[in-house]
């Protein structure tokens, strides 16, 4: 089979439509992951033993099972108990939940890496809890978190093709629809791969710039 530019031209508009969906899903599920991650991070650092243990149990379970199975769960099993989600919503929740568990580790590591002396100094200076967090801990904890968080956003972007398995028409979904219809796989899948490669290389470069900028700020 040889590469056909005509076919490429024919499918490009629909693939671009899929790309828009992909980007939209990435953005929404990033916000979801960042919030869910915060929730898990706080729970994992809770002083209540039961809360901490159950948070660890839940996050480890999510991290050790495949995203695809979790998506099937949200999409096929939840309707049995009366919760019917659209493919888009199920996909966004699945991605957000899965990556939320990874993100919670980033938050936790960031906060734990603030030296104990800083907490003690804040206490010695008689700062309130609120002041300790907003003036001392978070300004030191957040910059080192940004590169890993950025990497997880890229990872989520790269994972979105999996959503086509629960019938979301993202970039991969559109490509597979075209491929199944015409039985030409070469062009759609190559275009998807090139598209993803392009976007992830660009965003990786952006994150590296950001990282260097933050390093200069810290120095």
């Amino acid at each position: 089979m040889i590469w056909s530019w005509e076919f490429v031209a024919e499918i490009t508009p629909d693939l671009l439509k899929g790309l828009v969906v992909t980007v939209k899903i990435t953005l929404i599920s990033s916000v979801a992951a960042l919030s869910i991650g915060l929730f898990f991070a706080i729970a994992k650092m809770s002083s209540v033993d039961l809360v901490r243990r159950s948070a660890v149990l839940v996050t480890e379970t999510i991290r050790r099972t495949p995203l695809l199975v979790q998506l099937y769960f949200l999409f096929y099993v939840l309707p049995d108990i009366g919760i019917v989600l659209s493919p888009m919503i199920a996909g966004t929740i699945g991605l957000g939940l899965h990556y939320g568990t990874y993100v919670s580790e980033v938050y936790r590591a960031g906060i734990i890496n603030v030296p104990a002396g800083q907490w003690e100094a804040a206490r010695a200076c008689n700062l309130t809890t609120r002041q300790t967090w907003t003036e001392i801990v978070l300004p030191q904890a957040i910059p080192p978190m940004i590169p890993p968080l950025g990497n997880y956003v890229i990872a989520m972007f790269k994972e979105t093709p999996i959503l086509s398995a629960i019938t979301v028409l993202d970039l991969m979904g559109e490509a597979l629809a075209k491929a199944n219809f015409s039985y030409r796989y070469l062009e759609p899948i190559t275009l998807v791969a090139v598209g993803f490669l392009f976007v992830s290389l660009c965003s990786a470069a952006l994150i590296r710039l950001l990282e260097n900028y933050l390093k200069r700020q810290a120095a």
Binding site: M1, K158, E159, T160, P161, I162, M172, L176, A179, Y185, L186, I189, T190, V192, A193, F196, L197, S200, L201, A204
Partner: peptide, 23 residues
């Protein structure tokens, strides 16, 4: 390294299964 880290395993699986036969 960059090609295989830059695209998802999902796309790579489909490429291995559906595209390689064509070449």
């Amino acid at each position: 390294v960059e090609i295989f880290r830059g695209t998802s395993v999902f796309v790579q699986l489909f490429a291995a299964y559906f595209v390689l036969p064509f070449v």
